[in-house]
Design a protein around this nucleic acid. Structure first.
Lengths: 125, 125
DNA sequence: CATACGTACAACCATATGGTTGTACGTATC
DNA sequence: GATACGTACAACCATATGGTTGTACGTATG
């Protein structure tokens, strides 16, 4: 349950998802088990480049590689995805709270204190 | 309503959130309206560096700058946050579906087709 | 066993990123 | 009006990132 969100984890997850090719690779990996060269066919770049992207996803714990003969099959890392989900939720809730509070102010039209102090779980060395 | 998710938007949002300092700046911006130099006090880096981080957040549409005398107050961009929320949800649902399907397979123990074809909204030039 | 295939990995390159310092300029303040 | 403050922006630097090609090596296949 209460998975703690570390800054490093968040860095890795957001960083991994900050590239369209990697997001697409992740999507495909969820669809079925594909070898790296099979993945590489879909992109206008070399096999080695795709290999690197997979490595980044792997580093972020979103994906794993399983050996199957001479192929290296890319599979989703269930625990990793679940955990990443927690990371995304954390930030989404953060600003969703802010948005909701905005609505209160707009709807009820007269709440005074803009005392929106959010202590923040992560970071803060 | 049905905000379309573009690859560029996703790149910008994930990219902006892939840095701990920027995530913290965003948190603080949600807490109250702060000038850039006020924000900068909290980080072990120059004013100019913080300025750049704010610019990245601004570019991702998560934050805005409002003039207040000689200060530039950093405020959250409500529409941007809402839209970013949609982006995060998109990917979260993607793999949450995958996780749920996993559970089905484990629980009911005998579903055959791993026919998990997820067409994917964005990208796919 | 020779060959083709899928992969790993190193070297290399161009550009992006995250930081710095320095200068300039509008806006308060004395 | 001089001075201090908050900001903008350019120039610069080191490292990270995203791509390339080339080589090597295990694993199928003829």
């Amino acid at each position: 349950m209460g998975e703690t969100i570390t800054a490093e984890r968040a860095d890795a997850v957001f960083g991994a998802l900050a590239d369209a090719t990697r997001r697409d690779i992740l999507s495909r990996a969820m669809g079925g088990d594909l070898g790296i060269s099979e993945l590489a066919e879909h992109y206008p770049m070399s096999f080695a480049a795709v290999q690197k992207h997979v490595a980044v996803l792997e580093g972020a714990g979103l994906v794993r590689k399983r050996a199957d003969g001479r192929r290296r099959v890319v599979t989703t890392d269930m625990d990793g995805l679940r955990n990443a989900s927690v990371v995304l939720d954390h930030y989404e809730e953060l600003w969703r709270g802010r948005i909701d509070r905005m609505h209160e102010l707009l709807d009820e039209d007269g709440l005074p204190s803009p005392d929106t102090d959010t202590p923040d779980q992560e970071d803060r060395t």
